[in-house]
């Protein structure tokens, strides 16, 4: 297996996630696209980790960082969904476009 096939798969998923963040206006769907992005980063980390592990058996840095990313993603989704709920409670809609009070 080539290293590149995993990296390119991760690149495709990352770009689809970026498109989702830009094209969606529903708050929950934007969060899902962010999950896609974080997940593609994980694929990269594990692929590089496996590649390193072949040469240096004691080195599992890629996996450790992937685990850290998973934990941070869980925290991010928790807080993000709490914010979406709050926006819904105040405005009866979760369109990101409606949240424009910072605009003068």
């Amino acid at each position: 297996m080539f290293l590149n096939q995993f990296l390119l798969l991760a690149a495709i998923l990352f770009c689809i996630g970026v498109y989702g963040v830009l094209a969606r206006k529903n708050g929950v769907l934007v969060l899902m696209s962010i999950e896609l992005i974080l997940n593609s980063v994980n694929i990269n980390l594990v692929a590089f980790g496996a590649y390193w592990h072949v040469n240096d058996m004691a080195n599992v840095t890629g996996q450790v960082f992937a685990l850290f990313v998973i934990a941070v993603a869980a925290a991010e989704v928790g807080v993000g969904l709490a914010l979406v709920l709050l926006i819904y409670r105040n405005r009866q809609s979760i369109n990101i476009d409606d949240v424009d009070m910072l605009k003068g």
């Binding site: 297996m1 080539f2 290293l3 590149n4 990296l7 390119l8 690149a11 980790g49 496996a50 590649y51 592990h53 072949v54 040469n55 058996m57 599992v60 996996q63």
Partner: peptide, 16 residues
């Protein structure tokens, strides 16, 4: 990616 890792192979993957 293609420029940087042209055809880097994994070698024998061992279970981590």
């Amino acid at each position: 990616l293609i420029d940087g890792f042209k055809d880097t192979e994994f070698g024998d993957l061992t279970v981590q």
